[in-house]
Simulated assay, not measured.
Amino acid sequence: MSFVALAQFFARDVPGLAAGPDGADLVQLLRCPLTHGRHLERRYLLRWRYATSTESTGRFLTAAPEVPLLPWEHELPEPCVLHPEQVDTYPWAEDDTLPAALIARIDAWEDAQTAEGGRDAPSYQGALSIPPGWRVGGFPSWASTGPMDITCACAAPMRLLLTAEGYEMDADSHSWMPLEDRDPSLQGMASIQGGQSVTQPTRLRFGRDRDLHVFTCLTDPGHPPRWVLS
């Protein structure tokens, strides 16, 4: 069974994309179309390549690969083009990801926002620190698991290479929504204009609507990556 291609990123298009082993400048994310084990786990594959060699016309396929038979619609990605945008992000505020005094200030600010604006009030995690959707670099979100210490098998620390997420926007991410895709007079999900093609352009899901974080070794990017659903 062939892996299904989910995304590819060229270093020339994505500022800050971590270099691959031996200077590889193209990274591809793939997923096995089958589930594995009694927990129906997913298996992913990270491939590093050189843009100059992959873009040679002699390597292009003459026919598109046959689409595998998949049980669910969200298993097959919707073809789309990425338009990277560089934004400032900040760490998840929990445990020791930030100084305790700063987390206490964030909590107090969120309480005040909720008291004033109700359930659609902005939060640090959703509206200010980490954008939803596909992203390269930055900080991981830990909504489902809480902060985790990610280390390589060689004991070296690992950095976040990329995050794959099914939804590009949600009720808690009003500040990240493109202006052309929202009604500024509304908040939360009600403000989103355009339906599924806007909120879920790739049509993919990861786990139970979680983020798939891909970490690579800081010492040697050729070491096996780690996959974390959070």
Rank of each mutant, 00 (worst) to 15 (best):
F3S: 10
F3D: 15
A5E: 06
A5Y: 13
L6R: 11
F9G: 02
D13V: 05
D13S: 14
P15G: 09
G16I: 11
G20I: 05
P21S: 14
G23I: 10
G23E: 12
Q28M: 14
L29T: 01
L30P: 06
R31H: 00
C32G: 06
C32Q: 03
G37Y: 11
R38H: 09
L40F: 11
R43Y: 02
Y44C: 03
Y44D: 00
W48L: 12
W48C: 04
T54Y: 06
S56T: 06
S56D: 15
S56V: 03
S56E: 14
R59T: 10
F60M: 15
A64Q: 08
E66I: 12
E66M: 06
P68V: 14
W72C: 15
E73F: 13
H74I: 08
H74A: 12
E75K: 10
E75M: 09
E75Q: 09
P77Y: 15
C80R: 15
V81H: 06
V81Y: 08
L82D: 11
E85P: 11
Q86R: 07
V87Y: 03
Y90F: 15
D95G: 03
D95I: 09
L98K: 00
A100K: 13
A101H: 10
A101T: 15
I103R: 14
A104L: 01
D107I: 00
W109R: 09
D111R: 05
D111I: 00
T114W: 08
G117I: 03
G118A: 04
A121C: 02
A121Y: 06
S123Y: 06
Y124V: 03
G126K: 12
G126H: 11
L128E: 13
L128C: 07
I130N: 01
I130D: 02
P131N: 02
P132N: 00
G133N: 04
F139D: 03
S141Y: 05
S141F: 05
M148C: 04
M148E: 06
D149T: 15
D149K: 14
C154W: 08
C154A: 07
A155L: 13
A156W: 15
P157M: 05
P157F: 04
P157K: 04
M158R: 01
R159Q: 11
E165S: 02
G166L: 05
Y167N: 09
M169I: 13
M169L: 10
D170P: 02
A171C: 07
R182N: 04
P184K: 01
S185L: 10
S185R: 08
I192P: 01
S197Q: 10
V198I: 10
P201I: 00
L204N: 06
F206K: 02
F206C: 04
F206H: 07
G207K: 10
H213M: 05
F215Y: 12
T219L: 11
D220N: 13
D220S: 09
G222F: 06
G222K: 15
H223A: 07
P225C: 11
R226E: 12
W227E: 12
W227T: 06
V228W: 03
L229W: 12
